[in-house]
Structures are given as C-alpha cells and as structure tokens.
Simulated scan of single mutants.
Amino acid sequence: MISGVVTGQVWATRRIDGLPAGAFLEVEADGSGAKLIAFDVLGSGVGERVLIAQGSVAAGWFPGPPPPVDALIIGSIDPDPPE
C-alpha cells in the first residue's frame, strides 16, 4: 500500500461503462514524490492524505469484470490521531 497526498483531479469528457460513482485523482506518493492516478470512491479532496491499494487488490474491489483501474483510494488518513 502507498500513502500520499491528493494533488489534483483528473477530468474526462467520457467514461467507461461499468465504473461506479467516483473520481480519478492525482496523488503524490509519500517519500518518493512520484505521482499516480487513483480511483476514489470516498470523496477525497485536494490536500487530503490517503491510503492507496494497487494492482489486483485494487481491481478486485469492483464487482464483475474488473475495469482498467490499478490504483484505488481505500482510506483517508486523519491528520492527528485521537488521544
């Protein structure tokens, strides 16, 4: 899994049938600074820290035939842990 910060949104005029409601977001990975595009069903926004699953784990989340998505935002990381 990868943790990172959402840095932007990806906009498209068309979308594949079968994708659930959600958005593609650009995420900068912690440590490496590498950027990737991840599918988000949680409603994350720019500046939020998120946790990402990749590969078959990400594709396996979708019901039916897996869409061409290989990075999925699976969690939002709270800025401060509860006391």
Rank of each mutant, 00 (worst) to 15 (best):
V69L: 05
S32Y: 06
R49F: 01
M1S: 12
D70A: 12
P66R: 04
V27Y: 10
G8S: 10
V69E: 02
V46H: 10
G64T: 06
Q54K: 14
I52L: 14
S76L: 11
V41A: 05
W11S: 07
G8Q: 07
D80Y: 15
V46Y: 13
S3H: 13
I77D: 01
P65G: 07
P67L: 04
W11F: 15
K35T: 07
P66A: 04
F24M: 04
A21N: 13
S56G: 03
V50T: 10
P81A: 11
A29Q: 15
F24A: 05
S44W: 02
E83D: 08
Q9E: 13
P63Q: 09
P20G: 15
G33S: 07
L42P: 03
V46G: 00
R14N: 12
L72Y: 09
I16E: 06
R14W: 15
I37E: 05
D70S: 12
T7W: 01
L25M: 08
M1F: 14
F39K: 01
I73W: 00
R15Q: 06
D78A: 08
E26T: 08
P81E: 11
P66F: 09
V57T: 07
F24G: 00
A34G: 15
P68R: 06
F39R: 00
V10G: 02
L36M: 14
V57A: 04
R14V: 15
Q9A: 10
R14L: 15
A21T: 11
V27N: 02
I52C: 05
S56T: 07
A38H: 01
V46P: 04
A29I: 13
S32A: 04
L19W: 12
P20T: 11
R49N: 03
I16L: 04
G8A: 09
E28V: 08
I16A: 03
G55A: 04
V27F: 12
F24W: 15
G31M: 06
G22S: 13
L19T: 13
A21C: 14
V27A: 03
G64V: 09
P67S: 03
G45R: 09
W11M: 08
A59C: 10
P65F: 15
D40A: 02
V5K: 15
D70W: 14
G33T: 01
Q9C: 10
A58T: 12
T7F: 02
G8P: 07
G45V: 01
P20R: 10
A29T: 11
P65M: 10
G8M: 06
D40G: 02
A23L: 07
E26Q: 12
F39M: 00
I52W: 10
L19F: 12
P66Q: 04
V46K: 09
P63S: 11
I74W: 06
D70R: 07
P81V: 08
G18K: 05
L19V: 04
L19M: 10
P63H: 07
D40K: 00
R15M: 09
G31R: 09
G47N: 15
G60I: 04
